[in-house]
Amino acid sequence: MFFLGISDILVLALSLGILLLVTVPLSGTLVRFRANYNPKGLQLDAEGGAQPHTGPLVTTYFGMMIRVWKIEGWAGLYKGSMPTLISALTLTLFAVGFLGASPYSPRRTGSYHGPSAGVIPTLVYSIFDMLVSLPSVIITYRSVTTPHKLPWFQPMHSLRVLLTPTERRKPWILYLTPGLLLTQAVHITYVVVCLRPVGRWILPRPEGSAIPEFSVWRLALYFVTVLLSAGILTPLEVIATRLAIQRNHASPEFNSVSQEEEGDAEEVAEYAGAEEDVIGLRSEKDPYMGMVDCAKRIVDEEGWRTLYRAWWLTFLGGLAAAGSR
């Protein structure tokens, strides 16, 4: 076991502080942008007449960031900070204390890591890592997309807002959210089994060198590979976001993943001056029933472009990974 000194603690504190200040607004905006429900069809009013959808129409990533700031201010941009901090701190301390990782390069979040023994060990490690962190991901996504202002230092109160009574009684039901585990597993499998080996073949790293072998044609081929991969991974990320914020319920009068009507409401503060929600959320009384059903309904109700929201961020993430292969 590795014990932290004063300097190590300061480095970790600085790293986590940067994580919160920089990544929370960016990742929170991405979650909201991909979670925003914007059906393209007409709705019927009380008299049966057709009327257009009146929810927020946000078509760009930065447009969503501006909308969050205008409606909820800086506090809204930093929603999800506490679960992000707790998750990052826990994983970092585990990596440093038990796996011998350096506190000067703490565990990164949002990417797959594993042993360098081969594809299969890395795949197994990455799936296990996903299973361990899945509840934290769900809580973080829900804390970002909830219209309520959650207290920073009252975790039990926040959990009563974010989780249904069924989920609080049976926390393992989070793993049974229809399609979520499958979507995450497909994403991991593609990255570990396909994208990374191909990336290492295109940009090989000479023995003893920390820098991959670059050339014009190799970079061009890698560029195309990452672009095509973004076309596969981005819909999976959008679907995973939609499924993660979909709450589970086991009441017989509703669908098994629908929201409970009673015992599910908490008195929570609203944002001052917020007369409308930042994003629109799909009714939980008509939930997605799995990965394929979610993709089909998104295309039918909102159009195929919804599956590619912020695709360029997935693409830039793939390009940035070139130096770490």
Rank of each mutant, 00 (worst) to 15 (best):
H187N: 15
T183V: 06
V192K: 02
T225L: 12
W217N: 14
I232S: 06
V226N: 04
Y222T: 04
E213M: 09
I202Y: 00
P204I: 09
A185Q: 07
V224H: 09
A220M: 11
Y222I: 07
V186R: 02
R205D: 07
L221V: 13
V192R: 00
I202A: 00
P206H: 11
L221G: 06
A185V: 14
W217L: 13
S215V: 06
A210W: 10
R218F: 08
F214W: 15
G199D: 04
T225W: 15
P235W: 02
P212G: 09
E207Y: 01
W217V: 14
T234Y: 03
E237F: 07
S215N: 07
I211T: 12
P235V: 00
T183H: 01
V238L: 09
T189V: 07
E207W: 00
T234Q: 09
L182H: 05
P235T: 08
L195A: 13
V191G: 05
W217T: 14
L227K: 11
R200H: 09
W201G: 03
A220I: 04
S229F: 08
L227Y: 12
P212R: 08
V192P: 01
W201R: 14
P204A: 15
Y190R: 06
V192C: 01
L228S: 15
L182K: 06
T183R: 00
V216R: 06
L195P: 01
P197G: 11
R200K: 15
I202P: 00
S229D: 13
V216I: 14
V226H: 02
C194A: 15
I202C: 02
E213S: 13
T234C: 09
E237S: 09
L219V: 12
F223V: 01
G208W: 12
V186G: 03
L195M: 11
V238T: 12
Y190I: 07
L227R: 12
V226Y: 01
E213D: 05
S209R: 14
C194E: 15
F223S: 05
G231F: 05
S229N: 13
I211G: 05
R196C: 06
L236Q: 04
W217Y: 10
I211N: 12
V226K: 01
V216E: 12
